[in-house]
Amino acid sequence: MISEFQETLPHQVEALHPTMPPKNKYANVLEHLDSGIMLFDSEGTLTFINVQMAKLLELPRKSLAGCNLIQILLHPELGRFKKKKIMRIYRETIFHRKRYHELIDEYGRHWLITVTYGDQMHGDFLFSVKDVSDYKQIEQTAYQNDKLAMLGRISASIAHEIRNPLTAIRGFIQLLRPHLLQLGKDEYARIILTEIDRANDIIYEFLNSSKPSAPQMTVIPVSSLLKEVVLLTESEALMKGCQIHMEERAVPIAVSIDVKQIKQVILNIIKNAMDAIEGVGVDHSGEIQIGTQAAGRYVQISITDNGQGMDHNTLSRLFDPFFTTKESGTGLGLSVSYRIIKNHGGFISVNSVKGKGTSFMISLPQV
Rank of each mutant, 00 (worst) to 15 (best):
K185T: 10
I86D: 03
S359Y: 06
S42C: 13
A142C: 09
F323L: 07
V51C: 12
T116W: 09
E287D: 08
S328H: 07
L175H: 14
S337A: 09
K55Q: 15
T45H: 07
P165W: 09
K83T: 03
A250C: 11
I340V: 01
A54L: 04
R190W: 15
Q144A: 13
I113K: 09
L180R: 04
L46D: 01
I37L: 12
H101N: 06
I269T: 03
N50F: 15
G357C: 03
I301L: 03
E236S: 08
S128Q: 11
H17K: 01
K85A: 14
S235R: 12
S209W: 01
Q71R: 02
Q182G: 08
D41C: 03
N164F: 15
I340N: 02
V251I: 13
L9M: 09
L103W: 14
Y204G: 10
I196L: 04
L56A: 07
E236T: 10
I192M: 09
G44C: 02
I257V: 02
D41K: 03
A273Y: 00
L16Q: 06
V336D: 02
A159K: 14
K23V: 15
H32S: 11
H160N: 13
Q264F: 13
N268F: 06
D186H: 13
K62P: 05
P165G: 00
I72Q: 04
F125M: 08
N306P: 01
H344A: 03
I257M: 01
I340R: 04
K271Y: 01
N208I: 11
N272W: 00
T314W: 14
P165H: 07
N208C: 11
Q174T: 14
Q289P: 07
M274G: 05
A15P: 06
